[in-house]
Design a protein around this nucleic acid. Structure first.
Lengths: 153, 153
DNA sequence: CCGCTCGTTTACGTTTACGTCAATGCTATA
DNA sequence: TATAGCATTGACGTAAACGTAAACGAGCGG
């Protein structure tokens, strides 16, 4: 059984125009806002990447959570694994200079950049080979459709 | 001229049904020749991509198998799934014009080329974003090393 | 009172291309 | 004969990032 929380349950219909300070958001809204699924948000929490408050069992995401999610999505976009993202985020200290965090991030970024460039090279290579194969195949198809090649003048 | 496997070759019972110059190769040699593992060759066979003869239980790869493997590796290099490769190979008919096979290959290739180009675009995008982030982080590190902190926005 | 929507947890499934044992067999050489 | 070396067939493990039920609760509108 849960105790009744002070100040009305946030399970209210999302008419929070009057409440301007906290801007707590539930999982559905959060998901829509950032284009991810509910499953994803819960998954990230399970992996320790997010830590929303709770009203009873309902997750409530703060401004902070939203900032973290943005970072996660950026990290994902540039190809970091969630593990890497977590490792970097875990070093964040609101009361420190975060030099260590920044250095780690920079270090990982350099490596990731190298990986990306390598991937790009591989893809370029693949594109070349594939294009070449396609030319060959096209040529073969042409020859199939014009079988009178040997005696033609 | 018969190639015997390096080192102490096991009994190469190539007396068995010796067709003219078949150049049968066992799995170890095959793997070395093409830079894949034994597991890979067995896996491909399990997936129906290769079909070596058997001498008892020992796999013997023919010229044909080697050609097929080359194709598989090319396909893999340009990003096809093994399923796609199989689908294309399964259409091969030594007695036909193989027009269907070639058309399918061309069709799949066009789609794969599109995928590759999209991937390249994504990677380029990721590289840009990552580079930008790195600049920011570097800047933050510089500010950390300077005692005069400016007021954030 | 019913059903709808939104929320919860737990837990197995998906995908791809193999890696990594494990247990066993065949053959030839020291 | 024992050992070395190569072969065989299972069969479970791996990685990433979730998807997909299943089974349930809470609140609201009608």
């Amino acid at each position: 059984m849960k105790l009744i929380s002070p100040g009305q349950a946030a399970a209210n219909t999302n008419d929070m125009s009057s409440e301007a300070g906290e801007e707590l958001v539930r999982i559905g809204e959060m998901a829509k806002k950032y284009g991810v699924t509910l499953r994803t948000l819960r998954f990230y929490e399970d992996k320790g990447l997010l830590n929303p408050q709770r009203d009873g069992s309902t997750r409530l995401y703060t401004r902070r959570d939203r900032a973290r999610l943005k970072l996660i999505l950026l990290g994902r976009k540039v190809g970091f694994s969630l593990r890497d993202v977590k490792q970097m985020m875990d070093l964040y200290d609101p009361n420190g200079s975060n030099t260590k965090q920044l250095r780690l991030a920079l270090d990982k970024s350099e490596k990731q950049l190298a990986r990306l460039q390598k991937q790009r090279a591989l893809i370029d290579d693949a594109i070349s080979e594939l294009s070449a194969s396609m030319s060959t195949v096209r040529q073969m198809l042409i020859e199939r459709s014009a079988p009178q090649a040997s005696v033609a003048s």
